[in-house]
């Protein structure tokens, strides 16, 4: 029995380890995050700007808007006019692990997707489908993030089927939200593209939950049971709610008729 119990406990627990893309654990603080697309023409990715915006909307609805334990809400934005630097500029100076965002490419708010032809952004390879940098971070808040889709001639994105393009854009949006890569092949945030992904994996869901935890219901008048300082409200208001509940139970029993 002891061996069985030990085995019971030992077998239960193999959870997942997601990563972030910044040391501060930064996340958007807005209630709703928009995904916009830059207006300049994408030459080599096989889709128009409008189609790219539709792909982004499909990506957020198929993946990131489906996590019950996260408060994250994303919507498709609009096609926006931006500087030509977004089409040809380099997103970072320095290495990918020590990125200093180029000031001209800083995104003021939400997420911007732009086609980009600068080979330096993709380590000189057409196999790198895109690069994402939350390049507007203030403390623990992401204010804006940039997704660059590889628009060089001969890139790998162009000939991918529609579903693959959706999952690729969804992966880059995951980086824009603050997630790093996952070590698990079934995860959307796995470093390599894998055909057939149509939903998030546990690792992705844990990551987005940690960054954007759901707190139902709104406890403006009742306090929070959150233990880590993420919530709002005061313990005193929760205790007053408990006292009200106790009074209802004690005296309510006398007032209500029996079935």
């Amino acid at each position: 029995m002891k061996k069985l119990l030990f085995a019971f406990l030992f077998l239960s627990l193999s959870a997942y380890s997601f990563t972030l893309n910044n040391g501060a654990g930064a996340a958007f603080k807005k209630d709703v995050i928009k995904v916009n697309v830059a207006a300049h023409t994408c030459t080599n990715i096989g889709v128009t700007n409008s189609e790219l915006l539709s792909i982004a909307e499909e990506a957020v609805n198929l993946f990131w808007n489906r996590v019950a334990t996260s408060k994250l809400e994303m919507i498709g934005g609009s096609i926006v006019t931006v500087a030509s630097d977004f089409q040809t500029g380099q997103v970072c100076t320095g290495s990918t692990s020590n990125c200093s965002p180029t000031p001209a490419l800083v995104v003021s708010s939400d997420i911007l997707i732009s086609c980009n032809t600068n080979a330096a952004n993709y380590s000189g390879s057409n196999e790198v489908l895109g690069v994402t940098v939350p390049n507007n971070i203030s403390g623990a808040e992401i204010k804006g993030a940039l997704v660059l889709v590889n628009d060089q001639a001969g890139n790998s994105f162009e000939n991918k089927p529609h579903a693959a393009k959706v999952s690729i854009i969804a992966h880059e949006i995951g980086h824009a939200l603050g997630l790093g890569h996952s070590p698990f092949r079934e995860a959307l945030m796995y470093a390599q593209f894998v055909e057939g992904r149509d939903r998030l994996a546990r690792d992705d869901m844990n990551g987005i939950t940690w960054l954007y935890p759901e707190e139902e219901p709104d406890l403006g008048i009742c306090g929070s049971v959150d233990l880590d300082g993420h919530g709002q409200g005061s313990p005193l208001s929760m205790l007053s709610g408990l006292l009200i509940g106790f009074v209802l139970i004690v005296y309510g029993r006398k007032l209500l008729p029996r079935f």
């Binding site: 380890s17 997601f18 990563t19 972030l20 893309n21 910044n22 040391g23 654990g25 334990t69 996260s70 790093g180 939950t209 940690w210 960054l211 935890p213 759901e214 707190e215 959150d226 233990l227 880590d228 993420h230 919530g231």
Partner: peptide
């Protein structure tokens, strides 16, 4: 980076 700290939903 791996997350540092807890979040409760």
């Amino acid at each position: 980076p791996v997350p540092n700290g807890s979040a409760t939903t």
